[in-house]
Amino acid sequence: MYVLLRQLSRIRRDADISVPKRRISAAMRHVDSGSCNGCEQELEALSNPFYDLQRYGITMVASPRHADILVVTGTVTTRMEGPLRLAYGAMPEPRIVAAIGNCAIGAGVIGEAECLVGDVSMVLPVDIRIPGCPPTPDAIASALLRALGESSTSLPR
């Protein structure tokens, strides 16, 4: 345990993780609507000590009921369209949809037409688009923070 904690404190020191001046409060809920698991890996990486998105006050929550932001990865398959709409419908207003990755924003969709509905904007109103295959954790974090800074008036504080 001691060795692990020492390794972690060394990483935090070397990675030069700053304490943000302003913290926001935003809860994210993730739905995988048909991705290749790449965007999930990078979303999970956001919580590792190198990025630590929580220090900005952005957290992942277990239920769409608790969420301000719906993070959607992947092209929407015909089978995930229903669950995706349900998750969005369960969210309280105001709500934001972030489409993460090229598949979700409709660039470079791969698959057979009859299995796919299309990109996320065919199903839900998309507010934030983050391109990349997969987008790096840096790209996701900075795009989220930028978008939240702009729309902070509509976000619960």
Partner: peptide
């Protein structure tokens, strides 16, 4: 199979070089 994207059928008729892109996107990890 909630995420069934029909990749194998989408690759049918593609050239051998093009199909590797489709197979690769089956899974990032």
């Amino acid at each position: 199979f909630y995420k069934h994207r029909g990749l194998e059928r989408a690759a049918q008729g593609a050239s051998l070089e093009r199909a590797i892109k489709i197979i690769q996107r089956a899974c990032a990890t």
